[in-house]
Design a protein around this nucleic acid. Sequence first.
DNA 1: CCAAAAGTGTTAACGCTACACCCATGT
DNA 2: ACATGGGTGTAGCGTTAACACTTTTGG
Lengths: 223, 223
Amino acid sequence: MATTLKPVKQDIKVAVDNVIVTVKDGELFVLLIQMSKSPYKGMWALPGGLVEQKETLENAAGRFLKKQTSVSNVYLEQLYTFSDISRDPAGRVITCAYFALVPPDKYELQTNPKYADAQWWNIKKLPALAYDHEQIVKYGKKRLQWKLEYTNVAWSLLPKEFTMSDLQEVYESILGESLDKRNFRKKIVEQKMIRPTGKKAMRGAHRPAELFTFRSKVAKIIA
Amino acid sequence: MATTLKPVKQDIKVAVDNVIVTVKDGELFVLLIQMSKSPYKGMWALPGGLVEQKETLENAAGRFLKKQTSVSNVYLEQLYTFSDISRDPAGRVITCAYFALVPPDKYELQTNPKYADAQWWNIKKLPALAYDHEQIVKYGKKRLQWKLEYTNVAWSLLPKEFTMSDLQEVYESILGESLDKRNFRKKIVEQKMIRPTGKKAMRGAHRPAELFTFRSKVAKIIA
DNA sequence: CCAAAAGTGTTAACGCTACACCCATGT
DNA sequence: ACATGGGTGTAGCGTTAACACTTTTGG
């Protein structure tokens, strides 16, 4: 690489955008903010913004994540860097997309005065998005599906303790298909990702379900 | 994303670096250039450089690839964007790494006066690399191994016509393990990636081998 | 005729899929 | 007692992995 940094006429701004995902009621949701200024006033977009001079892309993504959801210590992964020349009408901006997985018991949406609104949107029913954000969301969804099959990322979308059905629901909502209960349990048990807590979940007029917890909250390849 | 482009004090340079890979004699090779200026004078590094104001990252990667190898129309994929604050001692530079697969019959190394030298290095015996380039090469190698198993990228590393053994050699050198001849052929034939040309390769004192060619030179997921 | 790589099938183990009934609880 | 979700086993099928000999050429 030849970054001899003689006066170069490069003036490209660097941003990050987060695809923040959670699962509620068996459906996948993405966090979007509503833009309050033109040219995309009123439209929805991924939360993000410019990187600061002295922070890494990952730090920037974490910073914006915290600003919107007040969570930290969640799964955060770089997705892809988008660089179309006219992706931002306001100037030359490239954006590095991250995706974050937020468990349903943890987040609290922040009302940021800078944006008109912030809301979870069902990923199947998204509004029109600003910039190239529709493309980014699609990319993120696909990556999540891959990750789910080959790693233990699912832990990032569940509370500390959960039932086998909760876990299966997460898989089904991400993969978009229903799975066989017995085969699912068998696969999960074989992988040794989770451990029974001994406790039971009493959730209504039926047999209580065993509660599990993840053995390790570190990303691991299980395939 | 809030790129309202009010005067921001962001001054981050954006570069690309290429992990250009080929296979020769059953071994994986990476193209490195030798730096002619301090602070890394004499050390080896990945070919790359700053992105121009009006080009995408992918275009920039293609441009540097062509400069070094005089090839175009080869497989080129974005790897990851590296952004450590002090990864470049000369200033704040983030780099988007790409990897390129070059077939052995196609390239011609360009002698670029800007660099002391450019050479193929066996990936198992790399010299000390400048910047964070060792990390980038490792990352690229891992990605290539994944891609090989789930897609038909191998076409990018072979000449138009090749024998089954040539193909197997590519797989073995990337995966770093030897494969069973019969099972390998069976798998490849089932995947329908290749087609016999009817021709034979006469390469010495042994039975001639059938020559094959790829049906499609477009990246496809085959798993 | 000898050396060298090409080409070819079968079997056993394993993993994946499909599938139906009983259990524990609240009302 | 009934409605609701929780929990369990097995058999068939397809896929993968292991394994050795014959063929065709050049020297």
